[in-house]
Simulated assay, not measured.
Amino acid sequence: MQKPPVDVLPLFPELDRLLLELLHSLTPEDWQRPTLAREWTVKDIAGHLLDGNLRTLSMLRDGYFGEAPEDTSYAGIVAYLNRLNADWVRAARRLSPAVLMDWLAQSGAEYTAYLNTLDPWAPAAFAVAWAGETESLNWFHIARDYTEKWHHQQQIRTAVGQPAPLMEPALFRPFIETMMRGLPHAYREVAAPTGTVVRVVIDGNAGGIWELARAAGDWHLQLPDAARPAATLTLLPADAWQLFTKGLSAAEARERAQVAGDEKLALAALRMVAVMG
């Protein structure tokens, strides 16, 4: 059975409200704290979130792309996005926290208003490449944008010791549900007999159970119904979001994960990356 789409549109205003509430509470020292996003500080991530709003409004709402990637392969798109991100973050370091917060508030409302104009079943302008798609529907594009806003805010929250609000089931579950849509692509080169089932469990009341089944020639997600999966991987929510957004290595995650059954099959899930760049 095909898994249903993930509806996140009503969550964007709450995500933005929580972000602005958090940013307004930060001290000058907090803004300069290091984060899981490598060289980026808390302030750098806030600038990157502003870029996401403005870039979407410019390119998709207004049809103004400014510059396009020369290489449209997966590697080319990643290099293009990394360059755009680095250029913007470097320039945004000139902006004060007050300016960033004002612009995040204004652009966030416009960004959400634009998303609400999209037909969820129409083709999206950009495919969700980390899920292996070359064409995606708008609902998946919107859900992917939700994961971007969620995990960058959580990087800020982790840096300043306030991670709890985004781990509530209402906000975390849609995030991890969207991330799990990348599992079939992560397993695309994993060989197994037809009918093999791998179960991935995100522990706790905000998590859930996902099953990946091997069909003739590919893997696909199915509603959980296997009595005895060939392999089961169990992760804590805090480890899962960091792993799938490159904040935790596969080796680090393995030390914290629980594995049952075929270890090789289970550990293939640790290779999934549900972000670009």
Rank of each mutant, 00 (worst) to 15 (best):
Q2Y: 03
K3L: 15
P4M: 11
D7M: 14
D16E: 10
R17A: 14
S25L: 15
S25N: 14
S25V: 13
D30W: 00
Q32R: 11
R33M: 06
P34N: 07
T35S: 07
A37M: 08
T41P: 04
T41A: 11
K43L: 10
I45E: 06
G47Q: 03
L54I: 06
S58T: 15
M59T: 12
M59K: 08
D62I: 05
E67H: 09
D71C: 03
D71N: 02
T72L: 14
T72R: 14
S73K: 08
A75M: 13
V78M: 05
A79Q: 07
Y80K: 03
L81D: 10
A86H: 06
A86V: 05
A86T: 09
W88I: 11
R90N: 07
R94Y: 10
V99M: 09
Q106E: 15
S107M: 00
S107I: 09
T117D: 15
T117Y: 01
L118F: 10
P120G: 12
W121M: 15
A122H: 12
A125K: 15
A125H: 15
F126T: 11
V128H: 13
W130D: 02
T134F: 14
L137G: 15
L137A: 13
L137S: 14
N138E: 14
F140K: 15
A143Q: 08
R144D: 11
Y146S: 06
Y146Q: 07
Y146C: 08
I156G: 05
T158I: 15
A159D: 05
V160K: 09
P163F: 02
A170S: 10
L171K: 01
I176K: 03
E177I: 10
E177K: 07
M179N: 10
M179D: 10
L183C: 00
P184M: 04
A186M: 08
Y187Q: 05
A192V: 05
A192G: 02
A192E: 02
P193M: 03
P193G: 03
T194D: 06
T196W: 06
V198T: 04
D203K: 00
N205K: 14
N205E: 12
G207P: 01
G207T: 08
E211L: 01
E211I: 02
E211Y: 00
L212F: 02
A216M: 08
D218S: 00
D218R: 12
W219F: 07
D225G: 15
D225N: 14
A226H: 04
A231W: 01
A231Y: 01
T232C: 06
P237I: 00
Q242Y: 08
A253T: 01
A257Y: 01
Q258K: 13
A266D: 01
L267H: 06
A268S: 06
A269W: 00
A269R: 02
V275K: 08
M276E: 08
G277S: 06
